[in-house]
Design a protein around this nucleic acid. Sequence first.
DNA 1: GTCTATACCTAGATAGAC
DNA 2: GTCTATCTAGGTATAGAC
Lengths: 213, 213
Amino acid sequence: MTDDSTSAGAAAQPQTQAPRRRRSGRRHEILEIAGRQIAEKGYAEATVRDIGEAAGILSGSLYRHFDSKDTILEELLRTYLDDLLVAYEAVTPASEGSASAALRKLIQIGVRAVHENRVEVTILHDNYKFLLRNPRFTFIQAMERQIMTYWLRVLEEGRATGEFSRELNPRVASLAIMGGIETMVRWFDPRGQFSHEEVAEQYATLHLNGLTA
Amino acid sequence: MTDDSTSAGAAAQPQTQAPRRRRSGRRHEILEIAGRQIAEKGYAEATVRDIGEAAGILSGSLYRHFDSKDTILEELLRTYLDDLLVAYEAVTPASEGSASAALRKLIQIGVRAVHENRVEVTILHDNYKFLLRNPRFTFIQAMERQIMTYWLRVLEEGRATGEFSRELNPRVASLAIMGGIETMVRWFDPRGQFSHEEVAEQYATLHLNGLTA
DNA sequence: GTCTATACCTAGATAGAC
DNA sequence: GTCTATCTAGGTATAGAC
């Protein structure tokens, strides 16, 4: 079950034992290697033998670091989604200015995530059906629902103030925009014609023009 | 290889032997059942035993109808993409009116495909990585590239005539729009708040506003 | 913490009777 | 065209020596 809740109580914790974020070095290194393998080949297709080989050890040795292959995947995705949620959360108030400014930020965060966390976004995108059907990964749905609320809040506010068109349903518009961002993982090349900032700017132009009445 | 070119010539064809579209009934029925299984569970996860069971036969019996599991998948996707290409091809000239009208049609075709060919679109979306990495399915890339040229032609024409904004790169804009359409497979519910025609209309509104300068 | 060796399972596919 | 029975390959995971 790999339940890392601090059930035994934190009071009894001895001196130097960092309970979380142990960053054992090797463990973290293997996690990154595994992520690259899974992103490149797909979760089912990247075997534990592949991951072991890429890390310079045999598959059996992986199980000294992780309970199972699923554990590796879960750790990768949880870490990423935690950070993404924090980033989105910070922009949602939209207090500082217009809804347009807030939407621009949402788009920038999404596009940047594709660029900077390519491995995780790729894994999430390519294995979505598997992840949704697996009880172990239901946290993903919950976190994405949370992200959706941040988008909705911005679009609804823009619609309420008349900044955005009344014709457009906030949920449909959000999904249309987010879908376009997510599928970037399939074509975006950081060494191509456009940097990720430029792509974000184009997306923002397109959708802000599109939404404003 | 499944090469169905009419190499032997059509002249020597005997009377009642329909060479293509044999629609043997049972074969076609199994194909639809298999499609549903694969769309629901994922290609790797839908086993030949699952497919057989859903069809009321044992897995071994499937091989009287199809050479392999891959054959089933290939036939499903080829048929769908063939039809989709034809639909897109018909609209591309954009001769009849403005680029806006043409783009609206492209969007309608894409959205309608998600609705009417849900099984195939779902399979294509969920197993994209696998399909790209498998030499047997390279035809998919070729056909999608062809579809992309249709979109590009419309967006470039609109940009050339000044109908669409110069700031937007046609390829980036196409991908943003198409990505939003494709990911509909993950949320669109025909019995939900909006029909597929209404979703298409919203998408068209959003993106036509977004593109027009 | 890694290796050797292997258990155990499930997948796609096949042979031959009916 | 379906069933019975089974092969073979390759997957995750484990046990125990080093």
